[in-house]
Amino acid sequence: MTDAGLFAVLVAMVAGAIRVSTPFLFVSLGECLTEKSGRVNLGLEGTLVLGAMVAFAVSYHSGNPWLGVAAAAAAGFALGALHGAICRLPRVNDVAIGIAMMSFGTGLAVFLGKPYIQPTAPRLPSLPLGDWLGIPSLALALDVSPLFLLGIALAFLLDWAFRNTRAGLVVRVTGDDAAAARALGIAVDRVRLVATALGGASAGIGGAFLSLFYPGSWNEGLSSGQGLMAVALVIFARWQPRRCLAASLLFGAAGALGPALQSIGITAGYYFFNAAPYILTLLVMAGTGSASRAARHAPGELSITR
């Protein structure tokens, strides 16, 4: 690989991290909040797809992409609230409901979304943060969406709130030990309901990014499983919002590797380059894990990490 080629790949990976990571970020932050409260919502893939479709439709009809983002957040909130409300019922398994909600959300999006595959909707604006550098390739890489910056801010805000605010503490106690939370007078079910609904809203915004910014179009294959992967990334991130950010950036950068390498002429074995995010994540997990601390960071009430 020449130096120029290497530089091109590095720039592409930075650009990829910025472009591709945002949906992962919003979904994983939403799921992080939900799981911190002791509940799992595996259905965020469906929320992501529904959010994408709703955002596109609203932007198309209203002409205002930000209305689309708001509508996607509302749709995600509604799906999350439904999930939360069902899981309040005794004997209902949250993991199972999540998988069913994935099917329901995707089905609803595909059902309602048929008329929006062909049209073009107003797209979210971008912020040209890199223009001052005077290097066109870098400038393009730093042509970022406000949603990306919002996602970063949300990661740090959540991180801070979990540590320093009363609400953050309430969520954490609820997620770690429901009995103790009840003893403190916390309405466990209500906390979880709110956390799940807000988590859904965040995932809905992730969907809006897909349909209104990058790749910026609605079709039925838009998500290709990104929502499910993002939920799994929360475990990888050990339930820490800042690690969710890191994991999403890593995933985005690795996802840019395949096309970038092919564009500079390294073409053999591209299936493995395209699978780089998965291989890399698995290697990192196997490399940093140890037998004794399988779920040390997990919220105690979580049903998938016992």
């Binding site: 699978a275 998965y278 698995l282 037998a291």
Partner: peptide, 19 residues
């Protein structure tokens, strides 16, 4: 052996299997 969460590991391996 490594304390790797089985949910995420199996999902990652599914994508790797397809590759």
């Amino acid at each position: 052996r490594r304390g790797v969460n089985e949910t995420i590991a199996s999902l990652l391996l599914a994508y790797i299997a397809v590759a």
